[in-house]
Amino acid sequence: MMKEFSFLLVLFSMVILPFIAQGQITVSPHSLPQVGDTLRQMVDNLPVGATIGNGGPDQVWDYSTLQGMYVLETIFHPRNHGRYNVKFPDANAVLFLSGGIESYFQLGESEMKEVGVSGGDPLNLDLNLIGNYMPPIEGKRAEITYGDSFRENSSLVFPISVGQLPDTLFADFPFTPDSIRLRVQISREEIVDAWGLLLIREAMFEVIRLKRIENSVSRIDVKTGFFPWVDISDLMGIDELGEQRSVSYFYYDEFSKEPILTLSLDEEENISRADYIFNEVTSADVFAGFPDESGLYVSPNPSYGFIALSFINLNPGRYKVRILNILGVTKWEANYRIDGNKREMVNISHLEAGTYLYSLVDAHNNIISTRRLVILRP
């Protein structure tokens, strides 16, 4: 089937496309996510052979060989579902991310802005930090056209209580600060650099492409009394977080709330991950379940060695995942800290083909669940 489809794509591109009068689409405001929406994308963490392709008008991009390994769900819950919703009065929606992180948004009819974040511990000090974007940062943009460009600067500011830090931390300082903050400076450049026809699996979409370059720098500031904030990042060794840079491409059609395709690039600007829209056409050969019961689920199953561990509705705590052969001998294990839902990608391609068991174990070494896993070889 795929060989026949590939032949048809070539025929379509060479013979039929030149006679179709195409024009760039406009991303409708109706495509912006709203409270209660669920967005689904297939995730391909091994987009072998995929390249960015050309920019400019009237392009054709063929990503028909992408193969998603699992489904990523993005659910915009009402703000009051979040544990720290009172900290974000300007938000009306919250996303629950891995590691217990909550991301708060202001979703409107004509704009989508990220307001702030709770959870996470970038300093590895066992802190639960809550921060606001100053100003709120733009999410998906509507009514963009080819050639548009945007520049945006924001700071994600996390106030830290002095009492949360070790007493010895400021022992050598000339003063004792009464206010501390972690400040993540974000600089973002976006350009609508192309439009054309996008081929995903066995589906075709008219799209417009937006390129995003984002740079972030993390700093620590302190102040005391009426004196201004002082940057002490170098003294605190904040360089461990360092500067970060990311490059992504987003392909949007007119009305879909998900990007039709999102390409994430690595440091060498090769495609490291491809997320594409999940629907009855793009996922026709993939079984995807969304379990309601709490526990650990593995997909795909059977697998050739790259699997997604999906932790669903678990109580906060430390857990262990074990993979055992049919004799009960542990062949692989790893520890995770879970708070609610989390998804981790794992490479177990070193295991021989066969039937295995995978178990979820809590911090007291109690086995919560055990299920079967089948490893295949090409």
Rank of each mutant, 00 (worst) to 15 (best):
L199I: 15
I200L: 15
I200D: 06
I200V: 15
R201A: 11
R201P: 02
R201H: 09
E202Q: 14
E202R: 13
A203S: 15
A203R: 14
A203V: 14
A203I: 11
M204P: 04
M204Y: 11
M204G: 15
F205A: 08
E206G: 05
V207N: 02
I208M: 05
I208D: 05
R209M: 04
R209W: 01
K211S: 10
K211N: 09
I213R: 10
E214W: 01
E214Q: 13
N215V: 13
N215T: 15
N215W: 04
R219T: 12
R219M: 08
R219G: 02
I220F: 00
I220C: 02
D221V: 06
D221Q: 15
K223F: 03
K223T: 09
T224M: 12
G225F: 13
F226M: 06
F226V: 03
P228Q: 04
P228A: 03
W229Q: 02
V230Y: 12
V230T: 11
V230R: 13
D231N: 12
D231C: 05
I232H: 07
S233L: 07
S233M: 04
S233T: 01
D234S: 13
D234F: 03
L235H: 04
M236P: 03
M236C: 05
G237I: 00
G237N: 00
I238H: 00
I238R: 00
D239I: 00
D239L: 00
D239N: 06
E240T: 06
L241W: 00
E243Y: 03
E243T: 15
Q244I: 13
Q244A: 10
S246Q: 12
S246D: 10
S246H: 07
S248C: 08
S248F: 04
Y249W: 08
Y249A: 09
Y251R: 08
D253I: 07
D253T: 06
E254C: 06
E254D: 00
F255P: 00
K257W: 01
K257D: 08
K257A: 13
K257Y: 07
E258H: 05
E258R: 03
E258T: 15
E258S: 13
I260G: 05
L261F: 08
T262A: 12
T262R: 14
L263P: 11
L265H: 07
D266Q: 01
D266R: 00
D266P: 02
E268Y: 06
E268C: 06
N270D: 10
N270A: 13
I271P: 05
I271Y: 06
S272T: 14
S272A: 14
R273C: 15
A274L: 11
